[in-house]
């Protein structure tokens, strides 16, 4: 009996009360602001300085993003990588998927263009933290 009356009371409360109090809304706003700041701080969008070119997981070349130039690789047919205005893209590739050719140009550190059929990858990098042995 006691539990039923409690339930009724609770039901009434949740039907009449506003879904959020003022402080709830404030809290949500603060959390949102913090998460936006965190996203800005921790997802760096640093302009890259180089493009690393990989085939089969092995780096075959590191190319400078500041020189406008085309680079041709012969991996089961021709792959042409174009460097233009500090961005890189694959302009032509005879692979069947053509996903790489349709990928928009990349320029920020960590951005990639992948050609899965040919195991060909280009990644934007920069020269921070140089490790030297010798």
């Amino acid at each position: 009996m006691n539990t039923t009356s409690k339930n009724i009371k609770y039901k009434k409360h949740y039907l009449t009360a506003r879904p959020f109090g003022l402080f709830d809304i404030l809290l949500i706003l603060i959390l949102l602001t913090i998460s936006i700041i965190l996203v800005i701080v921790f997802i760096p969008s640093v302009q890259g300085e180089f493009v690393e070119v990989y085939h089969n997981g092995k780096m075959i070349e590191k190319i400078d993003l500041s020189l406008n130039k085309n680079y041709t690789y012969d991996i089961d047919g021709e792959i042409i990588v174009e460097i233009k205005d500090k961005t890189a893209r694959v302009v032509s590739n005879n692979c069947h998927s053509q996903i790489c050719v349709q990928t928009p140009p990349i320029s920020k550190v960590g951005e990639k263009i992948i050609c899965a059929p040919k195991k060909f990858v280009i990644v934007v990098a920069n020269n921070q933290e140089m490790y030297i042995t010798g």
Binding site: E129, M130, Y131, I132, T133, G134
Partner: peptide
């Protein structure tokens, strides 16, 4: 050198 993450090392 010894590393705890994947890095690129240049040989002098």
């Amino acid at each position: 050198l010894k590393t705890n993450k994947d890095i690129e090392v240049n040989i002098l």
